[in-house]
Simulated scan of single mutants.
Amino acid sequence: MQRMAMVIGIKPEHIDAYKRLHAETWPEILAMISACNIRNYSIYLKEPENLLFGYWEYHGTDFDADAAKMAADPKTQEWWDVCMPMQAPLETRKEGEWWSMMEEVFHHD
C-alpha cells in the first residue's frame, strides 16, 4: 500500500458548489476510483486559504497504468470537466500536474 497526497487551490466563489458536488459524487466516479485500486480517498478544504488537500491509499501495483485507466474513462472526463473550472492549480506545480503531488514527511500508525 502506498499513501499519496496532493493539493490544489479552489476558487472561493465555487466552494459551496464543490462541496455539494462531492456530497453527491456520481456512482460511476466512485466505482472507477475503486477499480483503480484507490481506497480511503478523502478531500479536505482549508479556508480562508482556499486549498483542497486530497489523500488516498493506493493498493495496486502500477499507479501510472491505473491513473491512465482513470483518465481514459469518459465519465471521469465528464466529472473533471465539471470540477476543473472550480479549481485553481498552484503556480508552483510540476509540469504536467493539475493537482500538485505532495511528499510524505511523517507517518504514524
Rank of each mutant, 00 (worst) to 15 (best):
95 E>I: 04
3 R>G: 10
51 L>C: 01
33 I>N: 07
78 E>G: 09
109 D>P: 10
36 C>N: 14
53 F>C: 06
89 P>S: 07
56 W>T: 13
94 K>W: 08
6 M>A: 10
104 E>W: 02
98 W>E: 09
94 K>V: 09
47 E>R: 03
96 G>H: 06
39 R>Q: 13
95 E>D: 08
42 S>H: 02
63 F>T: 01
33 I>S: 12
90 L>G: 03
57 E>R: 04
58 Y>M: 01
68 A>T: 11
44 Y>W: 05
99 W>I: 05
55 Y>T: 04
64 D>T: 12
65 A>I: 08
62 D>N: 15
46 K>R: 11
78 E>L: 14
81 D>G: 13
46 K>L: 13
66 D>A: 03
53 F>N: 02
10 I>G: 03
56 W>F: 15
16 D>G: 11
60 G>T: 05
57 E>K: 04
12 P>Q: 12
89 P>D: 08
56 W>R: 14
28 E>S: 01
100 S>L: 05
103 E>T: 10
105 V>W: 05
55 Y>I: 04
72 A>R: 14
40 N>Y: 06
106 F>H: 14
81 D>H: 12
45 L>W: 05
22 H>C: 06
46 K>N: 09
64 D>M: 11
27 P>F: 11
7 V>H: 07
34 S>C: 02
29 I>Q: 00
36 C>W: 06
69 K>D: 12
17 A>N: 11
12 P>L: 11
36 C>G: 08
80 W>Y: 10
34 S>T: 06
43 I>F: 12
78 E>A: 15
107 H>W: 07
86 M>L: 03
87 Q>H: 12
8 I>P: 03
60 G>D: 07
19 K>I: 15
50 N>S: 13
23 A>N: 09
87 Q>N: 13
107 H>V: 11
33 I>K: 08
11 K>P: 00
6 M>P: 00
70 M>G: 02
17 A>C: 07
73 D>W: 10
51 L>N: 05
103 E>K: 08
71 A>N: 15
22 H>W: 03
3 R>F: 14
103 E>M: 04
64 D>C: 05
99 W>H: 01
40 N>F: 02
72 A>I: 09
72 A>P: 07
63 F>A: 12
23 A>S: 06
52 L>R: 05
81 D>K: 14
8 I>L: 07
108 H>W: 06
77 Q>S: 08
107 H>C: 08
7 V>N: 06
85 P>A: 03
50 N>E: 06
53 F>L: 12
83 C>R: 00
8 I>H: 07
68 A>P: 03
22 H>R: 02
38 I>G: 00
57 E>N: 03
33 I>H: 11
27 P>D: 13
